[in-house]
């Protein structure tokens, strides 16, 4: 579904290179997790996939279902089915959640909205996310708690139905109960949409107990240093990221 071919990414209008020669393949229906210390380029990677204006892909290519998306605008990438659930979702003062979702749904499908279906699916999602119905009339993310912001990202996934989801530290700032609700909703979405792939960006393996990854990658210094399964995440939690660095150094020396 998604293939990153030897990509290099830098901050626009500077020489600051963040991602260096990173390659990754994510197949249909697969769940991948990327872990790594702070400042290693995980969030840069997720925003680059979505076409964030502050980053520039200097080399390599990003293929989505076999086609290059590197020159597509942000909204065109979303129309391909890519969704970035953000670490700190933006507040949009004055725009209600309802207006925002209706506009996005119409733009994504390029069809008039079926209001009955729309309202039904909103109600179902609000119930399952344990959200008060009034939130749909609140301005997007305005005065939302950390947990509410993350749940709002999941609500958008359920309504907009993307095919490839990037969860950028969706677990940060969530209490245990909210994390369970968020993960339960993502798992249900995956069950109902079996071809959907997920890229989880996280510091901690806690979220991976609820959404089981097929592959875990450890990222450091702008590249993927090691790939394994869930045991790699658990080992890393025990021994820290430095042990991976040391191990890699040792392997290289040998």
């Amino acid at each position: 579904m998604l293939e990153l071919k030897n990509i290099y990414v830098k901050v626009k209008d500077t020489d600051k290179e963040i991602i260096k020669n990173l390659s990754l393949k994510i197949g249909k229906g697969e769940v991948h997790a990327i872990m790594g210390p702070n400042g290693t380029g995980k969030s840069t990677l997720s925003k680059t996939l979505m076409g964030y204006y502050k980053y520039e892909l200097t080399k390599g290519d990003i293929l989505f279902n076999g086609k290059s998306i590197k020159n597509l605008e942000v909204d065109e990438r979303a129309k391909c089915g890519i969704f970035l659930a953000m670490q700190d979702p933006t507040v949009i003062n004055g725009v209600t959640n309802s207006e925002f979702l209706k506009t996005a749904k119409r733009e994504l499908t390029n069809e008039p909205l079926d209001y009955f279906d729309f309202i039904k699916s909103i109600e179902k999602s609000l119930d399952s996310l344990n959200f008060d119905y009034s939130m749909i009339h609140r301005h997007v993310n305005k005065n939302f708690s950390g947990g509410e912001k993350k749940k709002n990202e999941i609500l958008q996934i359920q309504i907009l139905k993307p095919k490839f989801i990037i969860l950028d530290e969706i677990d940060s700032g969530l209490d245990v109960d909210s994390l369970k609700i968020v993960c339960k909703n993502i798992s249900s979405y995956l069950k109902e949409n079996k071809d959907t792939s997920i890229l989880i960006i996280t510091h901690y393996p806690r979220i991976l107990e609820y959404i089981k990854p097929d592959y875990v990658h450890i990222m450091n210094n702008g590249k993927i240093e090691k790939t394994g399964d869930i045991t790699l995440a658990l080992e890393t939690e025990k021994s820290g990221y430095n042990s991976i660095n040391k191990m890699n150094g040792k392997e290289k020396n040998e």
Binding site: M50, Y52, Y53, E73, V74, D75, R77, A78, K79, F83, L84, M86, P89, T90, I92, N93, G94, V95, E99, F100, T103, A104, E107, L108, V140, Q156, L160
Partner: peptide
């Protein structure tokens, strides 16, 4: 960043501006 957020949900730049102006 607001425009990026709107566009990341499939809303075109033109429609995003209209939505922001109206609100």
């Amino acid at each position: 960043d607001i425009l990026f957020y709107l566009m990341s949900r499939g809303i075109s730049k033109k429609r995003g501006y209209e939505l922001l102006i109206k609100s």
